[in-house]
């Protein structure tokens, strides 16, 4: 059992009166690798934004590192779903990774030696140091994803939030990608959300389903190498041969 990094109690979020999250309770500990799956529009991104303090719940309580989420943002790394930007954007990989240090560097000052050292370390961790001079929009989806993870790593977070991280990673690279996360798992809690059940692979240690309400499964119900089973979340499951899957009991 580790230390608690996130605690949500009866969290409700509404957009224009339409509930997106309904009474969500969630606890994440510092050695967790939690996978949250659920359909598009099920509130996955909203849940992450609640943890980041970007969305304020209508009801319920949120603690991150024992503090209100806005106060602990600097201890949280975030990789958003949208790597949607202009492919011609004039920024290098190095520029992008340094952005993670903005909160530490402070206004009106250039990045310090420490900032640059941390950026270099983060790029090394994700294996992209050789690409630091390249234009960010010219990288492949998987490479961009690594850079965005490096950008989230430079603050040395205790919690990493990943929104649909495999959406732009081509299947061949996914194993490599999960190995990277497996490596990061030693250093921080990870919460990964995805609509794609195969994304929540054997690497996650706990699993939950989110469709406005959160169904938490803990870590028991692992049944590897089973390709078909009843799966109550309205998620389409696409299995590719030898990929080990975890399948959940009916709930």
């Amino acid at each position: 059992m580790g230390r608690e990094v996130v605690r949500l109690e009866d969290v409700w979020v509404r957009y224009d009166g339409v509930p997106v999250l309904e009474g969500v309770d969630l606890t994440v500990e510092d050695d967790d690798f939690l996978g949250i799956i659920g359909p598009n529009g099920g509130g996955k991104t909203t849940l992450l934004k609640v943890i980041l303090g970007l969305v304020r719940p209508a009801r319920g309580k949120v603690w991150v590192m024992g503090k209100p989420p806005r106060m602990s943002r600097h201890e949280v790394g975030y990789v958003s779903q949208h790597s949607l930007f202009d492919p011609d954007f004039p920024a290098s990989v190095w520029d992008v990774v340094l952005m993670g240090r903005l909160g530490r560097a402070g206004l009106f000052k250039p990045y310090s030696r420490t900032d640059k050292q941390k950026a270099e370390d983060a790029l090394k961790t994700v294996g992209m140091l050789d690409h630091r001079e390249r234009q960010i929009g010219r990288l492949s989806g998987g490479e961009q994803q690594r850079v965005f993870i490096a950008r989230a790593l430079v603050t040395e977070p205790k919690l990493m939030l990943l929104d649909e991280p495999t959406a732009s990673v081509d299947p061949a690279m996914q194993t490599e990608f999960y190995e990277l996360l497996e490596n990061l798992k030693q250093r921080m809690a990870i919460v990964l959300v995805s609509h794609d059940i195969s994304a929540v692979s054997v690497y996650v240690s706990k699993i939950a389903c989110l469709n406005h309400q959160l169904f938490y499964h803990g870590s028991e119900e692992i049944a590897p190498e089973v390709l078909e089973a009843t799966y109550k979340c309205p998620v389409q499951m696409i299995a590719h041969g030898t990929v080990p899957h975890r399948v959940l009991k009916e709930h």
Partner: peptide
Amino acid sequence: ALSFDEEFGAVVG
């Protein structure tokens, strides 16, 4: 950062 990704900018303060 503002031009590249406002949301991330907000997250890092």
